[in-house]
Amino acid sequence: MWLPAELSVRGKGHVVTGKPCQDASRSATCLDGKWLVGAVADGGGSLAYSDIGSLIASDYVVALTQEFIEKTNIDEMPTDELREVAQQHWLQTAVQIRELLKHEAAIEGNDVGQYGTTLIAFAISKNRLIAFQLGDGFLVVDSSGNEDCPYQLIFEAQQTEHVGEVTWITSSAWQRESRSSVQEGDFNFVCASTDGLEKVAIVQSSQQPFSSFFGPLRKKASDVADAKGLRDVLASILNMPSLDLKTDDDKTLLLGLRRS
C-alpha cells in the first residue's frame, strides 16, 4: 500500500509581490493502493494565469493516469511494450491538457500562453515506475542496488546556456522537450518536486540526489502513521527558514512511501 501526501507553499518572492502560489501537486492511489499516481507542476512566474495552468495540468494528468493504470494490464505487460504504451499515454495526456488550457483561455478571453506550466507526472508500484517530465523540477525514487547513493534521479536536468529557460506545456516545443521513462526496481519511496528545492535536494554537478536531504526526509516520513502526519512532515520541511535563504520560489514536495 502506498501512502502519499503533497504540499505546495508560496515562495517568499510571491509573498512580497502578492502573487498566488503558482505550484500545484496532486496524488492518488489505485488498484487497491498497489499503485501511486502523482504530479507536480510549476506555473511560470511572469504568466498571469499559470497558477490555474499548473492546477489543471496536475489534476488532469493524475485523473487520466489513474484511468490508464486501471484499464491497462500494467503489472503483466512486457517492459518494451510498456515503454511504448506509457509514452503514448503521456503524449496523449499532454495533448488533452493543452486542449483544456486552450479551452479555458478561450472561455476567459485570455492568451493560452499565460497558462504555461512545467509538469512532472508518474505512476509507481512495488516493481515498476512510469514517468514523464516537461521542464524543470525533479523526480527521485529509492535505488536499492546503489551503495553509494540509495536514491535515483529519474530525469537529469536538461543543460541550457541561460538560467531558467524552460519549456511550458503551452509551448509549441513541448513534445520535443518532453521525456518519458519506464524503470523496473524494488520501490518503497518516491519524491517529486518543482525547481524551488533543486538546489538543496540535487547535487547540481553530478545530478545525484543529495542523501543528506532525502535520508532525513525519509526517516521523518517513516515515523508517521497516516497521510496527515506525512503532510505535517512536508510542512515542517517546506517552512524551514533556512530554505528561504536558498530560494524565494514557490516550493512543492510530493512524497510517497510504500508500506506492506
Binding site: G13, G44, S46, A48, Q114, E165, A173
Partner: peptide, 11 residues
C-alpha cells in the same frame, strides 16, 4: 526573478 519560455518572459 523568473523562468522564461526559451524566448523571453511575458513582458
Amino acid at each position: 526573478q523568473d523562468k522564461a519560455t526559451g524566448a523571453a518572459v511575458q513582458l
